[in-house]
């Protein structure tokens, strides 16, 4: 099979997979929140409410599409698109597992292994900021513009600590490519710890996860859409599938960020201390690495939900203060320490 056919199959598969995961995430969010809060959550649409996301999707598609009278029509449509599209595009460089051998051909479970992998994802994250600010501005609504401004300031500020954490990790592994970072996490470190990023970069991990919550607009950083203060922030005026794109894009962002966390810090598809390729055949090895990767990502997705329903949210100036005054110095310190250790060849 020529390479381009394989690539198309991978694209289609990963496209469907991300949509399914985003859809399941809505269910997990609602059921998880309910179980934390001693109540039941959706349980009418299908057993355990498993068809609820389907019902939500149908609702979003069939609702009336309202554009406010004085909104800027084209920008109003462009906002959600600019938000969701980079979210989807980030999957092009995300690894999903190691490799699978089908019909004698080795196929890596990643759409394309570009040499600037992580940089590509960071760049796309910056474009998503435009989606929020354009959506907030074009709605012609004071609450929306407040939400848009807050989100812009927050996201742009937190790209610096995000970048610093990634920079330290990149310095450690010597490459931007996601696949090579994953491959480098094999084996053990100091004799007994798995060779995962978190043991080598604990401070970077904390930095990254805080910045990830901020980039994903999740509590405790969800002030752009703080429900009790500014109604719904930048997506107040949106309904129907435009809102669907915003909400979906948010969940897809979550998956992206979780995948990067797992790739950089949690050993990607490696099981600790066990090398699966020694005892599994080529096809089952591919499937096994896919499952291991997905389970790790699922834990981090659950962590997003779990923290959302436990913690209050920050105020705008506290977010800025935390980002600029606390996290950037920590990031620089982390960078310095990493460079020191690399120089001393530890």
């Amino acid at each position: 099979m020529p390479d381009w056919k394989i690539a198309i199959i991978k694209v289609v598969f990963i496209w469907c997979w991300t949509l399914i995961v985003a859809v399941i995430m809505t269910w997990v969010e609602r059921r998880g929140a309910a179980m934390i809060q001693d109540r039941l959550g959706p349980n009418r649409a299908g057993p355990f409410g498993l068809l609820q996301p389907l019902a939500d999707g149908i609702k979003l598609f069939t609702k009336e599409d309202i554009v406010p009278a004085r909104a800027q029509k084209y920008l109003f449509t462009l906002g959600p698109v600019m938000f969701a599209l980079p979210a989807f595009s980030a999957y092009a460089v995300m690894p999903f597992g190691d490799k699978i051998t089908l019909g004698g051909k080795e196929i890596i479970l990643q759409i394309s292994d570009v040499s600037i992998g992580i940089l590509y994802v960071v760049a796309l994250g910056s474009i998503a900021v435009y989606g929020m600010i354009i959506g907030g501005w074009s709605s012609n609504n004071k609450f929306s513009i407040l939400g848009g401004l807050r989100s812009t300031a927050q996201l742009i500020s937190y790209e610096v600590p995000w970048g610093l954490a990634i920079l330290a990790a990149v310095m450690l592994y010597g490459t931007f490519s996601m696949r090579e970072v994953s491959l480098a996490q094999q084996g053990t470190f100091l004799g007994f710890l798995p060779n995962w990023g978190i043991f080598k970069q604990p401070l970077g991990f904390i930095l990254f996860i805080v910045a990830a919550y901020c980039e994903a607009n999740r509590v405790p950083f969800d002030l752009p859409e703080a429900e009790s203060e500014i109604v719904a922030g930048y997506h107040t005026a949106y309904g129907s599938m435009r809102l669907g794109l915003y909400l979906f894009g948010e969940y897809i962002n979550l998956y992206t960020l979780s995948a990067i966390i797992v790739t950089l810090y949690f050993g990607s598809w490696h099981l600790p201390y066990v090398d699966m390729s020694t005892f599994l055949g080529p096809i089952s090895y591919g499937i096994a690495t896919f499952l291991v990767f997905f389970l790790k990502v699922a834990f981090f997705l659950w962590l997003f939900v779990w923290v959302r329903w436990t913690v209050p949210r920050f105020r705008y100036d506290q977010v800025m203060g935390l980002g600029w005054k606390t996290l950037i110095p920590i990031g620089l310190f982390n960078l310095f320490i990493t460079a020191l250790f690399i120089q001393l060849s530890i």
Partner: peptide, 13 residues
């Protein structure tokens, strides 16, 4: 705080 909520979660599940 996460410990409290996860305890509720597991009991409810």
């Amino acid at each position: 705080g996460l410990g409290i909520t996860i305890r509720h979660f597991l009991a409810n599940v």
